[in-house]
Write a protein that binds this DNA or RNA. Structure first.
Lengths: 204, 204, 204, 204
DNA sequence: AATGAATGAGTGTTCATTCAT
DNA sequence: CATGAATGAACACTCATTCAT
């Protein structure tokens, strides 16, 4: 019996996931504001009413999407930072490693990132606030790296500003990369990005 | 008679402007999609119907806003680039001068820039496309600067990527600056930004 | 002074007339429901507000139009009937004379007739009622002619029905004639119409 | 499954029909232009939004009404004409039979006919054009009858004019009959109508 | 769970009418 | 008288959400 419940719960979670994935691709195509519940359910191959068996509102989907993304970003950043901190490797290699991690993440979740960075501003104010919170958290993690780099001998810059520069640069470039459908060679992009940021931060 | 006509036309233009400015601040506050015509006209101190004496639709306002901004950006970039090209000054000073020009522009049109960079993605697909076109033009202008810097002795990078890095960085940082309500000292920001980008691009 | 007032009144009447004529041609073109006050005033070469110096509402124009038409129709019918009654001529000639009078009237007021017969039904209920009243009056006049014809030796039909037949036939045919832009030869039309109606009513 | 689908489709068609019938009676009462979607749905006992599950616009209803009527008229006329052609009966009986067919049709669809003949002119230009097309087709069918009557020995008239006379007469009289709420005895009306038209067309 | 018809508040837009100049 | 900007009620249509089956 308990097994049965578990099974049905797994199925439920899968269905919920199907809706999220469907939402994602429709949001990407039409934008959040121009996406109708009907579009999502059509994509998911089910009916409008059924959507409400899994979500209590249209907003819940976007909230789930965003929370998932936020979690992913933060945990990824922390994970990468731990590597950064614990390994005594030349900064340039460490940063490259870091960026490769980012690249992988952006590639895996490209649609979510596009929605997050391109569309979230057009939604309700609360989403804009949420987005900025996430960006701030990201910047905060980056700042720790900058501080680390200063220990490694970087010029004495305002770490807050430099962290913000890094954040803007990394996100802007990767978003552009996604939008261009990954046209550019990943390694070349990372190489160039690392080069500018590390040299810009460290060279005397 | 002709004078009178002119006068009424000036008044008409002023009224139109009032609507644009009102729209701007409401869009900024509520987002384009959550702004009602009534919000705009209330801000402008007039009636709903009167809005349609000046614009044929809600969309027309956003189109006017965006075209105006696009023109401003492009012309400003060109103007600054001409200065950059025609004056034999050290690159770091030239770039600083360039960034000061940007800063001034961003400050003067901060609300429009926020709408452009934060909300436009959430609108119709056509606006996303338009936005990317404008960004591409901007990047193209920046690329000319990078090429110039290479002539000045920069490392041999892929100017397309470096231009994109610059674009992302500058826009990201300035948008953040606007959003933080210009909390940071302008000169410090410019100093730091120039430092990272020029050193990141030029140092061996 | 009194002369001056008179003069200004004449001018006022002329202006009113200009509006009525303008209305007519716009109603004909766009239909009453799709005609805007602006269309009328544009045609009249004046401004929207000025319209209300001459009429108290949009409805007043249609009322003036319709009353004028009703008066014209009724008086014309009476006039023709007097001729019919007072002249001892063969019925067929009298009817022909009658129809020639109608034809002239329809030609002179073709636009008004089209509005009356084609559009009035689409307006408010009260106009439909008014239209039917006018038609009834018309039929009542025709009935007097039928009665006269019976005195002349027509078969014994129900004069109410036959009058209605005549009314429908005459109006239907003339409206068609107007709509076809008077393509058909007037005399041929009258000849044929008279022929059918008189023979249909009188021959044993 | 297929049975279920069929059933739901039948229900859907019935609902659609309910809307059409409701529209009809409201149009008849208030006129197309003065009918609000709310009036229709109130009559149909449902909500405004639901109307749009069955029709894509207010216009679609009128289009359905008109197409249905046009089809009905044309097919009825053809059917009656076939009877007319294939049976060697005295013309007066044949015409009477024809008119009885018309009368039945007018009675069955009286509301639609009223809308068609009284209101369609007040709608958009395209509807006026459509109406005239239908009238022309009707006249064309009548013309064939006139030609037949000429073969039977009618005077040599211009069949186009005589057909138009018949059309105007028949429609005008029946519309009047509907409007008077069928006050007049059907048989007497038909008798009289036939008498005038056939004698008017055939008598030497 | 699944369906999709039903609901109705909400929104952009129109346009007759008013009124300050 | 003439002008045309200003007013705001009214309406067609949309769509998130509910609910009977």
């Amino acid at each position: 019996m308990s097994l049965r419940v578990k099974k049905s719960e797994i199925i439920k979670k899968e269905k919920r996931n199907l809706f999220i994935i469907s939402s994602l691709s429709v949001f990407e195509e039409k934008g959040f504001n121009n996406t109708r519940i009907k579009d999502i359910t059509k994509k998911a191959g089910t009916s409008v009413g059924n959507f409400y068996n899994y979500f209590k509102s249209k907003e819940e989907v976007i909230e789930v999407l965003i929370s998932g993304l936020a979690e992913l970003m933060i945990s990824k950043f922390r994970e990468l930072f731990v590597y950064f901190k614990e390994n005594r490797i030349p900064p340039i290699s460490a940063v490259k490693y870091l960026f490769r991690g980012y690249a992988k993440m952006f590639k895996a979740k490209s649609e979510t990132f596009l929605i997050f960075f391109e569309q979230m501003g057009g939604m309700d104010k609360k989403y804009r606030i949420k987005r900025n919170e996430i960006l701030d958290k990201f910047t905060y993690e980056v700042e720790k790296i900058i501080v680390k780099l200063i220990e490694f001998g970087a010029r004495d810059q305002n770490p807050k500003i430099t962290a913000r520069i890094w954040t803007s640069t990394v996100l802007g470039v990767f978003i552009w990369w996604i939008r261009s459908d990954f046209e550019l060679e990943e390694e070349e992009l990372i190489e160039n990005l690392t080069d500018v940021l590390v040299k810009g931060t460290m060279s005397k």
